[in-house]
Computed example of a mutant assay.
Amino acid sequence: MDSYKKTTIKSGITFGSCLAITISWSLNQSVLWAIIHGLFSWLYVIYYLLMK
Rank of each mutant, 00 (worst) to 15 (best):
I9L: 13
L39M: 15
I23P: 00
N28F: 11
S26A: 09
S3C: 09
V31G: 11
G16H: 04
M51W: 06
I35E: 05
L27W: 06
G38P: 03
L49W: 02
L50S: 10
N28A: 10
S11H: 06
G12F: 06
K6C: 03
I36Y: 07
A34Q: 00
W42S: 07
K5H: 05
S26D: 03
L27N: 08
S11I: 07
S41D: 07
G16R: 04
L43S: 09
T7Q: 12
V31N: 12
S41T: 04
S24D: 01
A34P: 01
S3T: 15
S3A: 14
I9Y: 10
T22C: 06
L19T: 06
S41K: 07
L19W: 01
G12C: 07
I13D: 04
V31S: 12
K10T: 13
K52E: 10
G16L: 05
L32C: 09
W33L: 11
W42I: 08
I46D: 03
S26N: 10
M51D: 04
V45C: 04
S41V: 02
D2G: 13
I9D: 12
W42A: 05
S17C: 13
G12H: 08
L19F: 05
V45K: 00
L39D: 06
L27A: 09
L50M: 13
I35F: 12
S3K: 15
S11V: 03
F15Q: 14
Y4A: 11
T22E: 03
W33I: 01
T14G: 10
F40D: 04
Y47M: 14
F40T: 08
Q29I: 03
D2Q: 08
L39A: 15
L50D: 08
C18A: 15
Y47A: 15
G12L: 06
T14C: 07
G16W: 00
I9C: 08
Y47E: 09
W42F: 08
I13P: 06
K10M: 12
K6V: 10
F15K: 15
T22R: 01
A20F: 02
S17Q: 15
S17K: 08
W33C: 04
S3I: 14
L27R: 11
F15M: 14
L27T: 10
Y47C: 09
L32S: 12
W25M: 07
F15I: 15
I46Y: 08
I13T: 15
G38C: 06
K5L: 10
A20E: 00
I9K: 15
S26F: 05
H37Q: 11
K5V: 09
S24V: 02
L27Q: 11
L32H: 14
N28C: 11
T7A: 15
